[in-house]
Simulated assay, not measured.
Amino acid sequence: MGKLTVKKVQSLKEPGKYGDGNNLWLIIGSTGRKRWEFRFTMGGRSREMGLGSADLVSLEEARNTAIDLLRTVRRGVDPIDARDDKKPRPTTFEDVADQCITSMKPGWSNLKSERQWRSSLKAYAFPGLGKMDVSAITASDVFDVLEPIWSAKPETAKRVRERVEKVLDFASALKLRTGDNPARWRGGLEALFPKKVKVRKVQHHAALPYAEMPAFMAALRKREGIAPRALEFAILTAARTSEVLGARWSEIDLDKKVWTIPAERMKARREHRVPLSDAAITLLKALPRDPEGEFVFISVMSKGKPMSNMALLKVLKLMKRTDLTVHGFRSTFRDWASEVTAHEAPVVEMALAHSIGNAVEAAYRRGDLFQKRERLMVDWAACCAGDSRSGAKVVPIRA
């Protein structure tokens, strides 16, 4: 005889766990919702298996199910694994790609990567491979996908090939296919295509010559609005667009003049401290605060949300500088530091949140050169303001 009754199940209100015997439990959550749960131990590990809402599954049905599951456990079979094995598994390239992308999302610093993966596969891979079973895809099928864009869009073709290869590797890990990966390059598709470098040179982000930075910054500072301030802040900190637009007030210490970007928002997945110059601090203190959100650069259109990625590009467009990109200002900063100042290369690279040296050097370099980067960012702010007294001079080294 169980410990619960139909009347008791209906009358219980207090959140908690109520046993009925045979490993069956009634769980009442903080909201008052009631559900059935079967609890068991398998291989020394405690497990819980949901049996449904108590509003839909009666006490008698839950008991009968619990008895069947208890018999399964006593035969040495894990009922959760047995249930999962019966679920339909993705087999088409499109379904496996979706599962593969979902599995990688926790490792990406922003949503841009997911959008790029999905859009490129949808545009170029799915028309030919989408409905095919991953176990049946051959090198010829992958060639048919890549051949139309290999010469016309070499960078796109390279990314599509890499992503198709990743999806098929994921399928192999799920044991949905066997054998070599038909999208691999070395020893595979490289025999069918000309090398990408012979097709077109890589184009870098358009960058402003550092000698023009004071004039550009003066023009930028005359523009009103949040977006121009976000672009100015991005330039002063040499940060990436996503890092600036995702900045939160909780990350910024105005007194200590430091912006600490958490690892999950960094491309390298490592926390990054940014020294803030007086110009950057002045900019931040003048910004309006959003009572509905925590973002530093608030969206005018959507309260409580960050600004769009296109907002900074729009500023450049309004300034009639469509020849430039936001990311290109990081190149301007690097060129200035390398050609005009005596700041060490590792300091500059760490200011850009780049990895320094090989794995051995990285293992021994535990600090982040913060004090040296403070001086670097002060000099950079002076350069942006056209201040020749910044101290950022080339120091000749005698033989």
Rank of each mutant, 00 (worst) to 15 (best):
T178Y: 08
T237M: 12
V164H: 06
G187M: 01
T156R: 05
L324H: 09
R115D: 03
K267A: 13
T72R: 09
A215G: 12
L12H: 06
T92P: 02
P275W: 12
D84C: 02
E339S: 03
A345P: 00
G386P: 04
S242Y: 08
D180R: 09
L59K: 00
Y124V: 09
F216W: 05
S242F: 14
K257D: 11
R177H: 05
C384H: 04
K196I: 14
R240C: 12
P288C: 09
R35M: 10
L69F: 04
M307C: 06
K257R: 15
E114S: 05
T332V: 05
D141G: 09
G19W: 00
A62H: 03
K393W: 14
R75C: 11
L236K: 09
I149A: 11
R63D: 12
I27A: 13
F40L: 07
V348H: 13
P106F: 10
P346V: 05
R39F: 07
L283V: 09
E339K: 00
T282Y: 02
D379F: 03
E251R: 01
G357D: 02
N23E: 01
D85M: 08
A82C: 06
K87A: 15
A337C: 08
G304A: 05
K175A: 15
V164M: 05
E224L: 10
